[in-house]
Design a protein around this nucleic acid. Structure first.
Length: 343
DNA sequence: ACCCAGGGCCACT
DNA sequence: AGTGGCCATGGG
């Protein structure tokens, strides 16, 4: 099927946003998305496959300006952050039942951006540069588990780690032209990998290896993942889909406190889980990138409550702006990591 | 070989 | 209640 929107919707931006790790770019310029045991191919109409001929729209164009400035020129060559027509591999029914919600299409992101107060010049600029990203409504368990294993990994490493875990423990969804596709493992499936007699509480030093089994590069996070799986089985009411008897009755603070009970889950992982898995739009994850950019641009402090009820989206704009140049153009001279400045 | 990564735990103050 | 070392692993 296909659908059309005029709202912010940029596949490249979402794919590189650091909230989802199972989007893979395809040769036709679209993406294959694996989520909640489903596969979707989505492609924007009018986008040429692969590289575009003439000016080379994305790769390598860092316009000779020293230092790689933000490209201005919306209106520009392919500045289609603002909507378009998309071609999806699913049926109309499946779109209405699942993907419409997954992409959070009932929310109007242009309006949310327009609501940013003009006094906050930097945030406005970041939001404009990163327009097109959306906060996906992902599965709570998949999100929780993914962000547990994300700690102290960069985004490409997270992608690889998640892929290994799915292949090792997830159910096979289908096979497309020779390559198998696996769903994210359920809590039960996670508990099924490795030797059941390993008790993460006892000997942490030998819990990282599973007698010749592939540990999926989990490292010290493996016991954390076990603990989360056990916790999820004990609290099924917090993982009910689509409302229900549920986490909706919990305040953000209460939900965060619940999640932080899990060994290996602290404020940051809980915040990511809440924002990307429970769609708590005020959750405000702060990682090293956010620390850096907040210190640089908001020396007097940044109060997320000012942006309620969508502080988390503002966080996303700031996070992505801070990482400008990492995923797009790997080489342009982003100034090195600034340390605790001294001279 | 080096430094760093969408951190959190635990033992220290 | 704050801070620092440490954890396992892979990408640039």
């Amino acid at each position: 099927m296909r659908f059309e929107t005029e709202d912010d919707f940029d596949l490249d931006k979402i794919a590189g946003s650091g909230q989802c790790f199972r989007w893979t770019r395809e040769a036709d310029g679209g993406y294959r998305i694996i989520a909640s045991g489903r596969i979707l191919h989505i492609r924007k109409e009018g986008v040429n496959s692969g590289r575009t001929g003439s000016g080379g729209t994305q790769k390598g164009t860092y316009g000779g300006t020293s230092g790689g400035r933000h490209r201005e020129a919306h209106g520009g060559t392919h500045g289609e952050a603002y909507g378009g027509t998309f071609e999806l591999s699913c049926t109309e029914q499946e779109f209405q039942e699942f993907w419409h919600s997954y992409f959070d299409l009932d929310e109007d992101y242009r309006t949310l951006r327009a609501g940013i107060p003009a006094e906050d010049r930097y945030l406005r600029k970041a939001a404009e540069a990163e327009a097109g990203v959306r906060i996906l409504r992902q599965d709570p368990w998949e999100t929780l588990a993914t962000f547990i294993l994300s700690q102290r990994k960069n985004i490409p490493a997270i992608r690889q780690c998640v892929g290994k875990l799915c292949a090792a423990a997830g159910s096979r969804i289908s096979a497309e032209n020779g390559s198998e596709v696996y769903a994210f493992p359920s809590p039960e499936q996670v508990l099924g990998i490795g030797c059941p007699e390993i008790d993460p509480g006892d000997s942490p030093d030998c819990a990282y290896h599973l007698r010749g089994m592939d540990t999926c590069s989990l490292g010290y996070r493996l016991p954390y993942l076990y603990a989360a799986a056990q916790w999820a089985l004990k609290h099924p009411e917090l993982f009910i889909r689509d409302g229900g008897a549920d986490e909706a009755s919990l305040t953000d603070e209460a939900l965060q406190a619940e999640l932080c009970q899990i060994r290996g889950v602290g404020i940051k992982v809980a915040s990511c889980t809440m924002l990307f898995g429970y769609h708590r739009m005020d959750a405000f994850p702060v990682d090293v990138w956010m620390q850096r950019t907040l210190a640089e641009h908001y020396p007097k402090g940044f109060d997320p409550r000012r942006y309620s009820p969508c502080a988390g989206l503002m966080q996303q704009y700031l996070f992505m702006a801070a990482r400008e140049g990492i995923s797009r153009i790997s080489r342009c001279g982003h100034e090195g990591p600034l340390r605790k400045a001294d001279a």
